[in-house]
Simulated assay, not measured.
Amino acid sequence: MVGAIGLVLFDLDNVLYDYNRRRRAERLSAITGIAADHISAAIWDSGLERLGDAGTLPRDAYLQAFGDRIGFPVGLADWLDARRAAMSPNGPMLALVERLRASVGVAILTNNPELLTDHVDVLCPELRPLFGDRIYASASFRAAKPDVTCFQRCLAGLAVEPSAVLFVDDLPENVAGARAAGLHAHHFTSVEGVRRELAARGMAM
């Protein structure tokens, strides 16, 4: 067995839920009448989403900037509608978490604005029964992965030492950031890979 793990910290998008940014842009296009390519460039290519993830923009300022960038006012209901349209639960991963939580702590750290965690029960209704209140947006820590500060502030809130945490994320740079912060980390590519990682640490699923 490799080290004792007391908490498994999961990314959300493309780990616990499949997330399709193109589908989100297309849904926003249907709502606003603005081309999806323009929306993608205005929101994601411009760096606005990164500002939201890092908590640089408060909730209202983020929504205002979101609409300003694409040239159409986007209210909370429309933002949630488009976000929800881009997401679908990863059933095998959620089933793994259900089994895992019987023996070890589980939590989520996602690069997202606080609007996501404010409305997680609308966007991701499967999560609350599994994770309770341990669902954290990077914006609440005023830093985003892979910044080590994001991990440090999250673990301080959870009152757990980095050496007791296994972090699971689909982006190699976030995995590297977690390791730099002292966490164990697994680069997510499949549920089978997570099972193998857990088994190597004495947590056969």
Rank of each mutant, 00 (worst) to 15 (best):
G6D: 12
L7K: 12
V8R: 06
L9Y: 04
D11W: 09
D13I: 07
L16V: 04
R21E: 13
R22A: 00
R23E: 09
T32E: 02
I34P: 01
A35Y: 03
A36F: 08
A36H: 06
H38Y: 04
I39C: 01
S40I: 03
A42C: 04
D45Q: 08
S46Q: 05
L48G: 08
G55Y: 08
T56N: 02
P58F: 11
R59N: 14
D60I: 06
A61D: 14
Y62E: 00
G67T: 00
D68I: 00
G71Q: 04
P73F: 06
V74Q: 10
G75A: 09
A77G: 01
D78R: 13
D81E: 08
D81Y: 02
R84C: 09
R84I: 04
A85G: 02
N90Y: 03
L94N: 08
R99H: 11
R99D: 09
R101M: 08
S103C: 12
V104Y: 08
A107E: 06
A107H: 07
L109C: 11
L109R: 14
N111M: 11
N111W: 10
N112H: 12
P113Y: 10
E114P: 07
L115I: 03
L115C: 02
L116I: 05
T117H: 05
D118P: 07
V120P: 06
V122L: 14
C124Y: 10
P125R: 15
E126R: 10
E126I: 03
L127I: 07
R128G: 01
R128I: 02
F141C: 13
R142H: 15
A143Q: 11
A143H: 12
A143F: 13
V148R: 13
Q152A: 08
R153S: 07
R153N: 09
R153M: 12
C154N: 07
L155P: 02
A156M: 06
A156W: 09
V160G: 00
A164I: 05
L166D: 02
P172E: 03
G177Y: 12
G177M: 11
R179G: 07
A180V: 06
A181I: 04
H186K: 07
H187M: 00
H187R: 04
E192A: 13
R195A: 07
R196Q: 14
R201M: 13
G202F: 06
M203T: 05
A204T: 09
